[in-house]
Amino acid sequence: MLTLSSISVAFAGRTILHNVDFTLAQGSFCGLIGSNGSGKTTLLRTILGLVKPDRGTVDTGGHEIGYVPQKIQLDPFMPLRARDVVALGLDGNRFGLPLPSAARRRTVDAMLTAVDATGFADRRVGDLSGGQQQRIMIAHALVRRPKLLLLDEPLANLDLRSVAEVVSLLHTLSFEQRITVLLSAHDMNPLLPVMDRIVYLANGSSVSGTVGEVVRGAVLSRLYGYHIDVIRVHGRVLVVAAGGEDGLDADIACEPVHVTQIR
């Protein structure tokens, strides 16, 4: 479904990604986990073909890709309804005026139903809450029925309840329509119940596998290049760097990298 082979990307002499490899089977739900600046956005844009890798290949099997970019700020003064944004996902690159068509309307309505957005479909999109806007963005990305969906930090800046709702919606869509989901996040915690694969990025390199294979002290220590402890406390997992060594990222040295709930 999706195979990346030894992808390397550098900008202005700085290595962003180095020999990133992984494969996703159809219908899998994969978290792309890493701290800010670890190259998650670059990796997603490389898969989309918006960034040309210096080395390596991306094979999407010719499938169409749906994409939800990070941090979309919708202008509250933009005179567009939520359903109009979904319709732009269908044919927003086409020339000419969109002529009213029953088929077009049915497709958009079906997508609005699938993301449970019928209740606010006719409201101005900039007036919606963050969670509602994220649903509309997902509908925009999926309205052409792609088999691969990439989402860049879709859970950032959402309240806890919206996070749970968006995760559960994505899981349902992935399960029912056999969509492969690759979702980036700096916090893997909300994804653990639904994620069957994980790609962990640090220092431009990656490890991938199941959560049980990847989120382990020995594996992450090798990835980060210094000692990492994965601590289980009260059914949660803390991923903590030992700290104090030369060249350590201050954030990682001082703080838990991730707080993770193990099921």
Partner: peptide, 17 residues
């Protein structure tokens, strides 16, 4: 009309489309 509107909503969305 549509490309102008889509890139007004988000340049990233327009690029991906």
């Amino acid at each position: 009309f549509r490309p102008l509107l889509l890139s007004a909503v988000s340049r990233d969305l327009a690029q991906a489309r």
